[in-house]
Amino acid sequence: MPTITYVEPGGAQHTLTLPLGATLMEGAVQNDVKGILAECGGSCMCATCHVYIDEEFLDLLPDIEEEEAEMLEGTTAERRPNSRLGCQVRVSNKLDGLIVRIPDRQ
């Protein structure tokens, strides 16, 4: 099972082992990592699960689909090239060691 490190807006780090297939959003919210709201519970409807992905891993992530792209346009914190919606990225073995930074606003 892959290990993911979340960095909260305040700098606190949480390294968690997540089940394959869980989303980055679920991993954070279910384990009480602060800073992700996930108001829609992962339906790609709210854009409050915005995260910044460690550059090294960007290419290993699934492509950004159109609806995610449009939601990313509306994030509260600045959209960057490494922005993703946490609920649209599923954890796989390739992502073992990934570092995910959480913006200060959602």
Partner: peptide, 29 residues
Amino acid sequence: QKPPLSKGFLQGKQTEESLLFRVPAWYET
């Protein structure tokens, strides 16, 4: 969570575990 019950859960795209608000240990902590 409730909303996926009539959507992703019945479609078989979301598991019961994925619906939990928090992991079981959270309540004790």
